[in-house]
Amino acid sequence: MDGVRQWRLNRDGSSAEVDLTGEILDGWGTAGALDWVHVNCARPGARDWLEAAGLEPLVLRALLAAETRPRCSVHGAGVLINLRGVNLNLGDEVEDMVSLRMWVTEGLLVSVQLRRLMAVSDVMEGVTRGQGPDGPAELVARLALRLADRAEPVVAGLNEKLDTLEDQVIEGLSALDRRGLADIRRVAIVLRRHMAPQRDALSTFEIEDMPWIRGHHRSRLREATERMTRLAEELDAIRDRAQVVHDQIMDARAEAMNRQMLLLSVVAAIFLPLGLITGLLGINVGGMPGAEDPRAFWIVTGALVVLGLGLVTLFWRTGLLGRH
């Protein structure tokens, strides 16, 4: 079946892909090797096969749940683990993370995906080349590490975009991509929301008292946990840096507006006494000085020019005009 792939993984790293079409999982994982069954529910017939595979109802519901968050919980002799990876499918949003659900026992690992997940394909390629894990915990660690490998370029890309915006703020460029900044913050927040629980899920799996989780498996799981921790910390830093850039942009806009308002205020202050004088001379009452003198208009005009130049000089020396 195209949507269901199965491998029998030996402890020496060798593997063999087998055909489970029409079979159930009862009895698998008891031959001293690890049986990995991966179900891609995006393919026709895969979901029906899984529902008929003989899993416990609780396990089946967890594997086929519509919405999941990263978690790790023990159920009987096995462990239910949900992880998430960045969505690198063409046309999808990278922050719309794809879930990987797993049921892990000593000899059996059933993994389920509802959409294409490139990290799983990476691990499959290694198994096909004969580089299989030596136990279920090792396989979980490999999947988690490949999820981190696929997420790291996305986080690095966010850092580079933010670096560009920070340089623009430093250079004082006016055409800043505020929509791009908002997208960076949104993606970082959404990714962070899944990375932190994923770190906790891997940490919980590492410390579970399962006899089939050996010492070197715990080391690999610890490495995967640290990778997720570092990604979560980088996303925190990106979110904080984006907030700082946003504040700087708003400060620059406020400062520009303040300069414009200051300039308008200075201009109004210059023309206020001039308007007062012209308004006073424009009143239509008797006794207006210079009403009969043909030179009075030019005298008043010259006095207004001198007064205006004096006010401009005064504001310039006080630094009000030098700030715009």
Rank of each mutant, 00 (worst) to 15 (best):
87 N>Q: 08
195 M>R: 13
46 A>H: 08
45 G>W: 09
249 I>P: 06
51 E>Q: 15
175 A>R: 14
118 M>H: 15
148 A>P: 00
249 I>N: 11
179 R>V: 15
154 V>Q: 07
172 G>S: 11
149 D>L: 14
254 A>Q: 12
173 L>K: 15
126 G>D: 15
81 I>N: 10
285 V>Q: 06
72 C>L: 08
88 L>A: 02
58 L>C: 04
170 I>S: 03
317 R>A: 11
99 S>P: 00
172 G>K: 08
21 T>A: 15
30 T>I: 00
183 D>F: 04
249 I>H: 15
259 R>A: 12
185 R>I: 01
27 G>L: 07
219 S>H: 11
173 L>S: 08
54 G>R: 10
157 G>N: 07
155 V>R: 03
104 V>P: 06
253 R>Q: 14
264 L>T: 07
220 R>W: 06
45 G>Y: 01
91 G>W: 08
207 I>Y: 04
295 R>H: 12
272 L>S: 05
242 A>P: 02
138 E>H: 09
229 T>Q: 11
265 S>Q: 00
79 V>L: 13
221 L>K: 04
199 R>K: 13
270 I>V: 15
138 E>C: 00
77 A>W: 04
247 D>Q: 14
37 V>P: 00
120 V>H: 01
274 L>G: 07
271 F>L: 01
94 V>W: 07
302 G>K: 03
127 V>R: 02
207 I>M: 02
101 R>Q: 14
252 A>H: 13
229 T>C: 01
195 M>E: 12
194 H>Q: 07
222 R>P: 02
313 T>N: 04
172 G>M: 12
17 E>F: 04
16 A>E: 15
55 L>H: 10
12 D>F: 09
255 E>H: 12
